[in-house]
């Protein structure tokens, strides 16, 4: 009897098993059920936002290449600071319609890598605190600017620029605006002695403006200028003396003990040695070999020139880098 039943039952059982295999199996990772109708309230969102940003020190900088490229340079540096201080850092871009001087001074960001001009303006307007100045590739605490022309140009010296067209970089730039203006002034030239001048927006634009022939000469930072000259695209006719280089400054409301710790971490930073691992082209920054302590007196000469050029009153248009 049992044998007979067994014979009858095995076929349907096999069919059922096969059907399950055929239609019913789903082998996959576990999934979370999402209810789209369960909406978060505004208060929850705000609370979440506050929680997300609590105790984060935002580090600002001005775009140099692209957001992605700049972030690749700064993010490893911020990870070093996090490891060295125990604080959380987050990178922040300077948005359109804002400038890094105001962001730092008004506390949108707590720390910023800024040029000498921007620091002088931010210090003047918001009393930001200088922490460190960058050491360039040669280990020097200042940077230079160059005035250049095309290789075939007849311009041999700055004085030959009288009545010529001159290209600056950004109006807020120390190396592509303030220092070149100082070099022109020291040679007895003012903006009025030029046939025309223009702020092209960046060092690279400045170089392009001259090599394309739209301008006879231009002023830009020394490192990039020397590299382009090595490629045979431009000819440098004058190199400035050293002025205090870019540095890192802090908002005045950041607690002093945090600043002390951060400053020490910055001074300890050794990008050529023990902290080199993970850095991305750090040698291209103005802080290539690390930092030295910065004091406000270091910027006295540059501050005088800016006052002379009446640049400290350009807060509404943008900060000087």
């Amino acid at each position: 009897m049992f044998r007979a039943q067994h014979k009858i039952m095995w076929l349907p059982a096999i069919i059922v098993i096969n059907a399950l295999m055929f239609f019913g199996c789903d082998y996959g990772p576990e999934r979370k059920e999402i209810d789209l109708k369960d909406i978060a309230t505004e208060a929850e969102i705000q609370k979440h936002a506050a929680a997300e940003n609590m105790d984060i020190l935002k580090f600002g900088f001005d775009l140099r290449a692209s957001p992605q490229e700049d972030a690749r340079q700064y993010l490893p540096f911020l990870r070093y600071l996090e490891d060295a201080t125990g604080y959380k850092f987050d990178l922040r871009f300077t948005t359109k319609g804002s400038n890094i001087v105001d962001n730092l001074g008004q506390g949108v960001i707590q720390l910023a890598a800024i040029g000498a001009g921007s620091y002088i303006e931010a210090q003047t307007r918001y009393e930001v605190v200088p922490l460190v100045r960058g050491l360039n590739v040669e280990g020097k605490t200042g940077y230079q600017s160059v005035i250049f022309t095309t290789p075939k140009s007849r311009i041999k010296k700055i004085e030959d620029l009288r009545g010529k067209r001159f290209a600056f970089g950004s109006v807020t730039s120390t190396q592509s605006h303030i220092i070149p203006r100082i070099m022109l002034a020291e040679s007895g030239l003012t903006l009025g002695d030029l046939a025309a001048y223009e702020y092209t927006g960046s060092h690279r634009n400045c170089a392009n403006a001259v090599t394309s022939g739209r301008f006879d000469a231009g002023g830009m930072q020394d490192v990039m200028g020397k590299n382009i000259e090595a490629d045979g695209l431009i000819r440098i006719i004058k190199i400035s003396k050293y002025y205090p280089s870019s540095g890192i400054s802090a908002n005045k409301n950041v607690p002093a003990e945090k600043l002390t710790k951060i400053k020490q971490a910055l001074l300890d930073f050794d990008p050529k040695g023990r902290h080199a691992a993970g850095l991305y082209h750090w040698e291209r920054t103005e802080m290539a070999t690390g930092f030295c302590e910065a004091k406000d007196e270091d910027y006295a000469e540059l501050r005088n020139w800016m006052r002379k050029f009446d640049l400290l009153r350009q807060g509404k248009e943008g900060a000087i880098q």
Partner: peptide, 25 residues
């Protein structure tokens, strides 16, 4: 966005609570 907040979305009626905790930190 860079502050870890949902700055834009296509959900009708608002951001679902499940996505508020997206570990954006």
């Amino acid at each position: 966005d860079f502050d870890g907040q949902v700055s834009a979305h296509t959900f009708k009626g608002g951001l679902p609570r499940a996505f508020l905790e997206h570990k954006s930190a």
